[in-house]
Design a protein around this nucleic acid. Structure first.
Lengths: 190, 190
DNA sequence: CCTCGAATCGGAAATTTCTCCATTTATGGC
DNA sequence: GCCATAAATGGAGAAATTTCCGATTCGAGG
């Protein structure tokens, strides 16, 4: 698991299988068969035992996370070293706004995968920390006190379930939701 | 499901079984065996077929929701018709503050059950609407524009997973979390 | 090229959630 | 009381997730 460095170089066949599994799963998702993404079927389709899938990804959420990981990496690259206003260079207030908008777009884009993820346990431990660290850092430049909590409070409403609910059942557009965040951060910036 | 009136008066044996199932499940939860709450075992322990559990509660989340329901009812009673500052009578700003604090306490109190609930799908459809309606109404009295979105944004961070993370892994006390909400609503009240 | 240990593999089996339906039971009207 | 019938029952079993472990394969070192 390449969480930090490379704890253990993966054996060649293992890496090949990981790749094959990801490809199969990605194709099934792309085919619209989301929700019927059974690990059994993924394994069969990839000509691999179920045990292999579990050895590589830990559990269902682990596999979904791997599917999401690609874009997550790009996203983090964007706000850490990319161009303004998301990347460094713009004033903090603008970066905050841009970051939140980008995060919303990102979740909307892969909504079905995020919905598959189930309980936020895995979600919280992974990318969440990175997002929180980044956002809290930006917030601290505008209003030092309580930046930590504020980051949590701003990130919490950006989750697939709530966004889907707001869009599908309350009829809000993504633009309206973004505007809501703008208004919220505006008052904080005070 | 006594959501509104009584859509269908439940047959006597059915009601008896529902009660028995709830009691057994509540006892298992109280015994600390949370997480191993399998419907199979609940059924066996309650001397009832699995089918009966599913007929009564729909699914796993439904049973957990039923365990939570008692307090939820009391909670709603409190903020709808109870004493100030949570109930009617206090100025809106105070009621908002009191409501958020009370909701946090409520989630913390039954944290293990909320964690069992899994994906927020069921959660969103049930009590969430009531909380949202109430909070949005109060917010509208203070700042009419965007009260709807604001209510979502304030409710989203009050969920078991985030609260547990903040408390256990970030070392925040419940008091600090409440203070965070106070600061947040203070700026909004502007 | 061979050997050997560790990593990996595959798939059978355990666990859980949920569905289905033939059978039993409660209850209102006669 | 008795009957018709709608509701409820229970448990077998489908489907999916996850664990386990003996057999196999990789690859580093000699």
């Amino acid at each position: 698991m390449p969480i930090i460095g490379q704890p253990q170089p993966e054996r060649a066949d293992a890496a090949r299988n990981r790749q094959k599994i990801i490809e199969v799963a990605a194709r099934m998702v792309a085919d619209g068969c989301v929700g019927r993404l059974s690990l059994d079927e993924v394994a069969r389709e990839a000509c691999v035992g179920v045990g292999t899938v579990y050895r590589r990804f830990g559990d269902r959420a682990g596999l979904v996370l791997a599917l999401i990981d690609d874009r997550e990496r790009r996203f983090q690259e964007d706000f850490l070293r990319g161009l303004p206003p998301v990347g460094p260079g713009a004033p903090p207030a603008e970066r905050i706004r841009a970051f939140l908008h980008a995060l919303i777009d990102r979740v909307v884009e892969q909504m079905d995968l995020f919905l598959l993820l189930g309980p936020p346990t895995a979600q919280l431990s992974g990318a969440y920390r990175a997002h929180h660290t980044h956002l809290a850092g930006l917030l601290a430049q505008v209003r030092p006190e309580g930046a930590n909590f504020l980051a949590d409070a701003l990130l919490a409403p950006i989750n697939a379930h709530l966004l889907q609910y707001q869009r599908d059942e309350r009829g809000m557009s993504i633009e309206e939701i973004k505007a809501g965040f703008d208004a919220l951060t505006q008052t904080i910036r005070t």
